[in-house]
Structures are given as structure tokens and as C-alpha cells.
Design a binder for these strands. Sequence first.
DNA 1: ATTACCTAGTGCATACATTCACGAACTCCG
DNA 2: CGGAGTTCGTGAATGTATGCACTAGGTAAT
Lengths: 229, 229
Amino acid sequence: MSDTPRRRIPEAALGRLPIYLRILVDLTNDDVTQVSSEQLAELAAVNAAKVRKDLSYLGTYGTRGVGYEVKFLTYQIQRELGLNQSWPVVIVGAGNLGQALANFTGIAERGFHVVGVVDKDESKIGQLVGGVRVRHADELQQIASSKAVSIGIIATPAQHAQEAADSLVRAGIGSIMNFAPTVISVPRGVNVRKVDLALELQILSYYEQTRNNGLRAVETGDSSDSVSA
Amino acid sequence: MSDTPRRRIPEAALGRLPIYLRILVDLTNDDVTQVSSEQLAELAAVNAAKVRKDLSYLGTYGTRGVGYEVKFLTYQIQRELGLNQSWPVVIVGAGNLGQALANFTGIAERGFHVVGVVDKDESKIGQLVGGVRVRHADELQQIASSKAVSIGIIATPAQHAQEAADSLVRAGIGSIMNFAPTVISVPRGVNVRKVDLALELQILSYYEQTRNNGLRAVETGDSSDSVSA
DNA sequence: ATTACCTAGTGCATACATTCACGAACTCCG
DNA sequence: CGGAGTTCGTGAATGTATGCACTAGGTAAT
Ligand SMILES: NC(=O)c1ccc[n+]([C@@H]2O[C@H](COP(=O)([O-])OP(=O)(O)OC[C@H]3O[C@@H](n4cnc5c(N)ncnc54)[C@H](O)[C@@H]3O)[C@@H](O)[C@H]2O)c1
Ligand SMILES: NC(=O)c1ccc[n+]([C@@H]2O[C@H](COP(=O)([O-])OP(=O)(O)OC[C@H]3O[C@@H](n4cnc5c(N)ncnc54)[C@H](O)[C@@H]3O)[C@@H](O)[C@H]2O)c1
């Protein structure tokens, strides 16, 4: 154990580490052993200085004049993200999305495995999805503690998302990924991230509309307010 | 149409407008007609000043001492986001996710409708998903132009995502929503947004790990999404 | 009308993020 | 060994976002 730099990583940089990680894994598969910030930047579609600064939060893992050793950097990012282990996750809601997620293999390849799926609907109980049997929502706490689960996924309709969040919190889960299009409130200290398809589409809608207004989605923000009509 | 303020909306604010919009729609359903920035902020789990500033980019639609009229504000946000119309979208890739999306009704309720689903795999062609028949990827251009589609969704495996993106661009699509966990490159002027489940989970993983290291996931840093209310 | 009381809108300070540009550190080659 | 060439790490400048705290503009009651 040489050292553990352990500065806190800024949110913005944190959001890019998984991207670099995926690229590095791909590079390893292509037998590439060294990579420069310039190359990484190209592959991640970002600025090279940003790559270097992002990586500098992890420690000093590059070699000047050379670049980064792919495997070593891969390991360091994984370690920093806590991906040395595979995290057990539970899914709340065994509907279309919940089942798709449970069946989805891509999740397992990136550091997670589904150890439980629960639903409130009796007709769903007992069904086998993604190798696990759907159990009743009341058993959530038991599942979470017996399998040491700390990450939960909400895949219920929006109107039940808060209820699902509450039960996850009660079960001792500290991090929640929310697919329901609603804001959930959780106690301080619980992390929530959301994935909201419609929200993203609506942002695209905005850009499409401004494009059609002749007010381009603007590269540099040329500020000259060309009023539409 | 009195006036159209038409300043360009900052990215950060833009990302919150769909949230306010959803809340406002819910309020209307609950027969609430007026709302203050304070209440909206509470419901959206953000700061009230932020709500006011975000809304100020649209124009001056509130009434001091009173608040905002729910229906009027709803209309203004919809108009700004281009949600007066329902946008036609095409889905590339009719696998698990593509089918789930095509079947998903939530998308229609929020301003979009699927007019085409294409796949490269012959065995998928002709299948009926979400009310439309899967057609061959080669027909993408024809579908896009005949239905005036400007938004495309990539739901192919990562290794085919660039190919899918290229075909969408060739078909004249200007905005792309990418579900494949890979960076796609597109010509200048084409908008891309991504939804990456594993990436979000990996961020949660980081926070779980730091939590266990005794170095708390820190309150204040809930900048973009991670609510710690 | 006047006063008391709200709440939107916003200027400003602060915080956070991005990018440039340059010195430091390493390799390679003659 | 020394100089040329490369690429990292980072200070400083710029750009963007947040949130406080105040002003402007509205309501309501007397
Ligand atoms: N289907 C998609 O393609 C898609 C895409 C993006 C987002 N979403 C969102 O994902 C969520 C789920 O979508 P879906 O299509 O799977 O819906 P669905 O109706 O098919 O499934 C929801 C499931 O959640 C269960 N449920 C409800 N309350 C529960 C509770 N408290 N505890 C446990 N289980 C509970 C229901 O019994 C049902 O089986 C929705 O919020 C939707 O907006 C879906
Ligand atoms: N399944 C999930 O729950 C889930 C969740 C999140 C993200 N994703 C991502 O979504 C993507 C799709 O996942 P999936 O589970 O649906 O995969 P899948 O293999 O079931 O489906 C992919 C489909 O895309 C088609 N395809 C491939 N190349 C194409 C092309 N050039 N043009 C048209 N069609 C093409 C294939 O024929 C196949 O039918 C993947 O990138 C995956 O990582 C999936």
C-alpha cells in the first residue's frame, strides 16, 4: 500500500470516470497497453486537459512523455469507484422495465448483480426473472439484510415510487436509482440518482424547436438575440 | 401571442424545466390553480431562488405577492420545450429495450409517439411492437422523411451504436437519444443525449464505497441529481 | 388611501467546472 | 551525456451555476 490520495472527486469528474473506464476496457480487449490523454479524450469526446484533470483526482498515475498504462489505470478507476467487488442490487417493481433490467446482462458486466426482485402484485410473485424469483415487497427488508444489499432500483409506476423509496430506506439501503419519472424524497445521507427518459427527450425537443426557429442550438452562444417573430 | 422573450436557456435550467412541468401537471390534476416558487421548490427538491431564476428565463410569468398560475405556467413551459406538438420518434434496435420503449405508454403522455422501429435482424422484421411493425434498418431514411421524424433513439448493442447513429444522421435526424453504453460521434449540429444505467450505478457505487470508508458522501455536493434531502 | 404583508425577479458574491498554457518529467537517439 | 521530442500535472483565467438577500410589485384589510 503505497498511498491513498483520497481527495473527494468532483461530481462532474465522477460522471466521466465510468466512461473512461469503459474505453480502457475496450482498449485492453484490443491489446492496447498505453494510452495518452489526447487519445482518451478523442475516444470520450472531451477535451484532453479535462481528461488529465479528471484522472489527477485519483492520483498521479500517468507517465510524462508516455501516457497512461491501460491496465493500471483501469484498475485504479475501478478501485476508486468501488468496482473491485460486484455489488448486490435489488429491484423494486417487476413490470416491463423491472424484468428487462433483471434480464439485462450488461449490468453484470459492469460491477453489479441482481440478488432480488420484489413486487406488490401477487400475480408477479414467484415468477423467475433474470435468474431470481420475484418475491413480495414485504420481504424487501429481509432480502436486503441477508444479502447485504446497499443499492436499490425503483422500477414502479411514478405514483408508487415514493412508497418504494420509503421501503428501500427502511430496508437500510443507502443508494437508490430511480427510473420512475417523479422526485422522491429520502433522508439525508441516502444517495439518489435518476434516469428519466421523457425528461431527456423533452430536452431534445427544446433543441429541435430552437433549431427550427432559426435560433440554432448554438455552439458558442453568439448572444445576438435573433428574436423569432 | 404577446411577446416571445427567447433568451437561450442555460443547460442546467433546461434540465429542470421538465421536472417543474411534471409537477405542474400533477398540481392541475389535484385542482391546484396557484403555486409559489417556495412550493414548487419543495416539490422539486431544489432551492426556491433556483426555481424563480429558472422560470425567469422563460419570461415574466409570475405575479408578485401571489405566485404562478399553474395552467398558464404549464402552457409556457410546454411551449418553450416545444411540447405543443407530439414529436414523432424512431427507434433503432427492436431488442429487449427497444420493444419495452415502443410499448411504453409513458412516452406518449409526455409529448412523443413512436412512428417507426427498425432492426437489422431479419427475424425481428414484421413483428408488431407498440402498435407499429418492425421494419428493416435500410428503410430508416424512407421512414424518417415520410413521417418528418427529427428524433431518433438508439437501442442497439454498444458495438452497433455508431452504425445506428450514422444511419440516423444519414436519415436527416437532428437529435439522438442513446441508450447504448458507448460514446457516439456525430456531425456538428446534431444533438445527442445519453442514458447509461451502468454509469449511474457506478456513481452510486462510488458513494457507497466512500460511505464505508468513513469519508461521507458529503451533503453539499448534490449538485446535479443526487438528492440528499 | 394607507399600511401590512406576500412573493416574484434579480444583482451580486461565491462556488464549481472547463480550458488554456506552461513547466516538469520522462523517452529516445545520436 | 545532452538535446529534441513527447505528454503529464496543474496554476490561472474564463465560463457557468447556485443561492443569498434585497427590491419591485402585487394583494388585502382597515
Ligand atoms: N417500460 C419502459 O420502457 C420504461 C422506460 C422508462 C421508464 N419507465 C418507468 O419505469 C417505471 C416502471 O415502468 P413499467 O413499464 O415497468 O411499469 P409496469 O406497470 O409494467 O410495472 C410496475 C410494477 O411495479 C409494481 N409495483 C407498484 N408499486 C409497488 C411497490 N410499492 N412495491 C413493489 N412493486 C410495486 C407493480 O405491481 C408492477 O408490477 C415507470 O415509472 C415508468 O415510467 C419505463
Ligand atoms: N435491456 C435492458 O434492460 C437495457 C437497459 C439499459 C441499457 N440497455 C442497452 O440498450 C441496448 C439494447 O439492449 P437490448 O437488451 O435491447 O439488446 P438486444 O440485443 O436485445 O437488442 C438489440 C437489437 O438491436 C439490433 N441491431 C443491432 N445493430 C443494429 C443496427 N445497426 N440497426 C438496427 N438494429 C440493429 C439487433 O438486431 C437487436 O435486435 C444495449 O446497448 C444495452 O446496453 C439495455
